[in-house]
Design a protein around this nucleic acid. Sequence first.
DNA 1: AAACAGTACAACCGCATATAT
DNA 2: CATATATGCGGTTGTACTGTT
Length: 254
Amino acid sequence: MGRFSSEKYGVRKGAWTAEEDNLLRKCIEMYGEGKWRQVPLRAGLTRCRRSCRLRWLNYLHPNIKRGVFDQDEVDLIVRLHKLLGNRWSLIAGRLPGRTANDIKNYWNSHLSKSLAARAARVEASTSIKRAKVIKPHPRAFSINSRWLLERKNFVEPQPRDKVSKSPLKLREEEPMLSRKSILVEDVMESGAFTTEHRTKEELPAGFRVEGIEEIRVETKEGHVEDEGHGWDDLLLDVDVWGLLDTENGIEMPR
DNA sequence: AAACAGTACAACCGCATATAT
DNA sequence: CATATATGCGGTTGTACTGTT
């Protein structure tokens, strides 16, 4: 209702014209990203700085990939959403070329409904039983862990550039590979996590094993499913992002 | 062809956090 | 240290587009 035409206090709102896009693009090319306060003036736009920033990050940025999401991307979104919830910018950080806004829109218009429908179907056809199961819970995985330090290929991550926090910047830097690869490959190789029972002593130092109340789903036919807690899900359950972003391993971004 | 409903997506807003003064 | 300002994020809205009746 008038959102795409209102001009209050001389500030334009609503849909961007091709001319405005060009002005903004030229301005960013000339002065670079950031200093959004100065952008409207420099670009000769009667837009607020936030509108300029949003337009650039969600639409004009050259790295943005447009078009439909392929199956791999959808799978990744679903998995990351399971892990991170509605932290769209973090999810976007793992999907090169996709913006948080795109992913959020896609989730809201496609995935949330279909997943809710699927959950409803599962709900209708299953009974829920609580069972005590043991699974590894490496939240206290210290960076100084002897086990970790002995791993091949371990590279101490460099402090992150303070200004490069945007998803697009993170994509370019990919600072996560070192410890991530250890978690995914070396831990697997070590056999610390398998479906077989192992004693605590066999786990790498720093890993904690504790009983976790976990919901298991038993279908009416009597099959027991673990609600998708296969290897992939276990890895996602691990606080990988927290591990990568802090020295001692415990801290989730807000 | 017109009316209506549903969907997609760009854009705005409020709040939280980071940074500067 | 306190305050002001800038930036980033997620929720929400509104319009354009598309399909259906």
